[in-house]
Amino acid sequence: MKAIAAAGTGKNETRSFRMQAFLEGWSLFYENIVGRIGLYLLILFGLMALASYIPPLIDPMYHPMTGVDPDISYASAPSWRHWLGTDNIGRDIFTQLLTGARVAFLVGISAAFISIVIGTLLGMIAGYGGRVLDSVLMRFADMIMVMPSLLVILLLSVLFGQLSIWIIVMLIALFRWPAVARVIRSQTLSLKQRPFIDMARVAGASHVRILFRHILPNVLPMALLYMTFRVTSAIIVEAALAFLGFGDPNTVSWGMMLQWVWKTGHMFQAPWWLLPPGICISLITLAFYMMGRAMEEVLDPRLRKTKGPDYAAS
């Protein structure tokens, strides 16, 4: 009834209807404690990433890569001068940690975005394009999905020599689209059965127009949801690569900080160095993951807490 009314009276009501749906979704999301924790954590990391620009302005020794405290040439414990201590050559760990947040967001969001674009496009094409195209694409997706992405990327790094952060982002994206494509494909398949697609076809809309004008807006929420999960896995893969010594040598990432503490043999002596990067990687992936789960509950009514009958022990 509501949808008909909105369609009948034009854009304004559609917008208010969407707005209302958005607000309702938001309130559902916010009611969810998991989603709320995730959101707060992300805000915290966002602030860290922004704050990473400040310390080098105060003193060049706070530069995360090149700044070395002239008086310290060993791993020093936390002090007023270095809130989280220094690494073995006197670089400030707190600054590195802040910069790491920036790199994590950069890698996570850009890799996730690219894999979502690839996954959504291929998923829509597979779902819309008919049987042959569908099975070819999905078989291909399956094949990539059974490959351990970290190890594939490692092997491919042989071809590139030294990896830069953008190559890492591209490689992660290339190996992380199949799960998205699968979900989008099944959504597209069910959308294809709906009358409004037939109507568009009868009205003479081209395939491209149907895909982008009618199907894309409907699969977009799901794609966005998957983006949060992709961010998680992208951050983990980048951190693992850096931890194994395959990171971009021109940036400081949390994984790289862990590699340094591990390889320089400070893991038993310098907890101030070992703990923060690990906590940050774990928490930022947790934050995105929690956001994703809460969004999933908003988007998929079947997962909601107050849904349907649930039988208690009687």
């Binding site: 998991v34 994984g255 591990w262 038993f268 690990g278 774990s282 947790l286 993951y289 807490k305």
Partner: peptide, 29 residues
């Protein structure tokens, strides 16, 4: 829906997203 459910869910989420090499180093330590 009980507190223990929420607690375990969050704990499982946390374990699931722990950065593996780091937790390995912590365990060794």
């Amino acid at each position: 829906g009980k507190p223990v459910d929420t607690g375990v869910t969050i704990f499982a989420l946390v374990c699931n997203t722990l950065f593996l090499p780091w937790i390995a180093l912590l365990f060794i330590w």
